[in-house]
Amino acid sequence: TYTWNTKEEAKQAFKELLKEKRVPSNASWEQAMKMIINDPRYSALAKLSEKKQAFNAYKVQTE
């Protein structure tokens, strides 16, 4: 089980997950979700809006 003390740690864990699963920077949210949804870190960020925000930040960083 994973635990995160801060929102920032949770966001980092979520981005690490995207990186580890090699989600391409041109992937849509739907494509990315299919690649990461079974990992416990997918739940790091509770709100869908937070997940999408972190995903978009990840995409910008990896382009």
Rank of each mutant, 00 (worst) to 15 (best):
T1Q: 15
T1E: 15
T1S: 15
T1A: 14
Y2F: 14
Y2I: 15
Y2D: 14
Y2L: 15
Y2A: 15
T3R: 05
W4I: 05
N5L: 10
T6D: 10
T6M: 05
T6A: 04
K7I: 12
K7S: 07
K7G: 07
K7V: 10
K7Q: 11
E8Q: 09
E9Q: 07
E9A: 05
E9K: 04
E9H: 04
E9Y: 04
E9G: 05
E9N: 08
A10W: 02
A10K: 08
A10D: 03
A10Y: 03
K11V: 15
K11D: 14
K11F: 15
K11E: 15
K11S: 13
Q12G: 09
Q12N: 11
A13K: 05
A13N: 05
A13C: 09
A13F: 04
A13L: 08
A13G: 04
F14R: 00
F14V: 00
F14I: 01
K15I: 15
K15C: 15
K15S: 13
K15Y: 15
K15W: 15
K15N: 15
E16G: 09
E16R: 05
E16C: 09
E16M: 08
E16N: 08
L17T: 01
L18K: 00
K19W: 14
K19Y: 13
K19T: 14
E20L: 03
E20S: 06
E20P: 02
E20N: 05
E20C: 05
E20D: 13
E20A: 07
K21I: 04
K21A: 10
K21H: 07
K21W: 05
R22H: 12
R22K: 11
R22Y: 07
V23C: 04
P24Q: 05
P24C: 05
P24W: 02
P24S: 06
P24D: 06
S25H: 13
S25N: 10
S25K: 14
S25L: 15
N26Q: 09
N26H: 07
A27R: 03
A27L: 08
A27Q: 04
A27P: 01
A27T: 08
S28E: 05
S28G: 05
W29A: 00
W29K: 01
W29P: 00
W29E: 00
E30H: 11
E30D: 13
Q31D: 12
A32W: 03
A32T: 06
M33N: 06
M33I: 10
M33E: 10
M33Q: 14
M33T: 06
K34I: 12
K34R: 12
K34M: 14
K34A: 13
K34V: 11
M35G: 03
M35D: 05
I36N: 00
I36L: 06
I36P: 00
I36G: 01
I36D: 00
I37D: 11
I37M: 13
I37C: 13
N38C: 10
N38K: 11
N38W: 06
D39A: 01
D39L: 01
D39K: 00
D39R: 00
D39V: 00
P40F: 13
R41E: 01
Y42L: 01
Y42V: 02
S43C: 13
S43V: 10
S43G: 13
A44F: 04
L45Q: 01
L45W: 01
A46P: 15
A46G: 13
A46C: 10
K47C: 13
L48P: 07
L48D: 13
L48N: 08
L48T: 09
L48E: 14
L48R: 06
L48I: 11
S49F: 05
S49A: 10
S49H: 12
E50N: 03
E50K: 03
E50Y: 04
K51L: 05
K51Q: 04
K52S: 03
K52I: 15
K52D: 02
Q53V: 07
Q53C: 10
A54T: 06
A54N: 03
A54I: 12
A54Q: 07
F55T: 02
F55L: 10
F55H: 03
N56K: 12
N56Y: 14
A57N: 13
A57H: 10
A57R: 11
A57I: 07
Y58P: 02
Y58S: 02
Y58K: 01
K59I: 14
K59E: 03
K59A: 09
K59N: 04
K59D: 03
K59V: 10
K59G: 04
K59T: 08
V60P: 03
V60I: 12
Q61N: 12
Q61R: 06
T62I: 13
T62M: 14
T62P: 08
